[in-house]
């Protein structure tokens, strides 16, 4: 039997949005490509930059997804956990850089910086969970979200007070200046390092969640918290570990972000945080592989989108609007596909 549906005003508006967006994308892409505004090399560089930036997003997005998996809450302050790692590690990087250690032993030096960032982010994430979220576990859904917004503001402004307002420039590694030739294609060394490290970290996370006992406990909790507790899993401890793991990934992302963009500051958590959340939803929130794919997709969309779509539509200075592209992706994904690319609609 055919399903009969009442068409409401809301449906019409939603349909109109879909049509407008689709037409815009098609026309913009066609106009840009047919006009040949950028060369193939330029597109390729944008793509690689997108992948590098997307792998940073993916690392942050994993934190959102892990926490969402176990607690079903959006940890709005996760962007600031990311920022805190990058900011704290700056002081170590700066000290190592000015003493010359970083250039003499680049791998050991970067490893130290990375570990400092991961540990400090993880510490903040654990504190955050313990102080702000744990007492609210049984509260109505909006209560922890409002708490998280407050915590985000609190962390970023604490860092502003403690570490100062200035933008801090990370020391540049000599060995990371220049390009690698890979299959005859020159790629910035920093991009290669960022992409490779992100992939390694993600692989480690995947192994941790799939193969270890703690990872199994995490998955059990995301299935059903109460049953997991009955099966002898220490729920509080596992949730703390989840936050710690998410924090470590965010801390690593903080350093990688600093390698790509060369600078850190107290407000840098907000935009990457929102974008990574978009990435997590894009991939299907709670889904680890989805978060990785979502991050890469968003990074590429953000770097190529403005040039591909907007410049084709004749919009002046399209790169000014890259955040608009990211936010539009956020809005469109949440409205039209809140269960993500990989997910299926929930029957709720």
């Amino acid at each position: 039997m055919r399903r009969i549906r009442r068409v409401s005003l809301v449906d019409i508006i939603l349909l109109a949005i879909r049509v407008v967006v689709a037409i815009g994308v098609v026309i913009g892409t066609y106009a840009t490509l047919s006009a040949g505004k950028l060369t193939w090399e330029q597109w390729r560089d944008l793509l690689i930059f997108g992948v590098a930036q997307g792998s940073v997003y993916a690392l942050i997005a994993l934190g959102y997804t892990l926490v969402y998996g176990v607690l079903l809450m959006i940890n709005f302050a996760h962007g600031d956990v990311f920022m805190f790692g990058g900011m704290t590690a700056f002081f170590v990087a700066d000290a190592l850089g000015s003493s010359g250690f970083l250039d003499a032993n680049p791998i050991v030096g970067m490893a130290i910086v990375l570990v400092v960032a991961m540990v400090s982010s993880a510490a903040v994430a654990i504190l955050l969970e313990r102080i702000a979220y744990r007492p609210l576990r049984r509260a109505p859904r909006l209560v922890p979200l409002i708490t998280a917004i407050g915590a985000s503001l609190f962390i970023s402004n604490s860092v502003r007070g403690l570490y100062g307002e200035q933008v801090k420039a990370y020391p540049q590694l000599k060995i990371l200046v220049g390009k690698f030739e890979i299959f005859g294609v020159g790629i910035l060394k920093t991009h290669v390092v960022v992409i490779v490290s992100a992939l390694v970290i993600m692989a480690a996370l995947y192994w941790f969640v799939e193969k270890t006992r703690t990872g199994r406990a995490m998955r059990a909790i995301s299935e059903d918290k109460d049953t997991a507790a009955l099966m002898g899993i220490n729920v509080d401890r596992t949730i703390s570990i989840t936050f710690a793991v998410g924090g470590m990934l965010a801390g690593a992302a903080g350093v990688l972000y600093a390698i790509v963009f060369n600078q850190v500051h107290w407000f840098m958590g907000f935009l990457p945080g929102i974008k990574a959340f978009t990435a997590a939803v894009l991939g299907g929130i709670g889904n680890i592989i989805g978060a990785m794919l979502g991050g890469l997709t968003l990074g590429v969309l953000e770097s190529i989108g403005p040039n591909l779509l907007l410049s084709g539509l004749g919009v002046p200075s399209p790169n000014q609007l890259r955040d608009v592209v990211a936010f539009s992706v956020l809005v469109l994904v949440l409205i039209f596909r809140p269960y993500g690319i990989l997910g299926r609609p929930e029957n709720r």
Binding site: V331, L334, I335
Partner: peptide, 30 residues
């Protein structure tokens, strides 16, 4: 209209997105 069917926390993030889009558009050269 587009956000009404969303769950509470997603609605919050989408409206945040709208707010930022509005600001960026008012700010833009376009």
């Amino acid at each position: 209209a587009p956000v009404l069917r969303l769950r509470g926390d997603y609605l919050a993030i989408v409206t945040l997105g709208f707010g930022e889009i509005a600001r960026l558009l008012f700010l833009s050269d376009a």
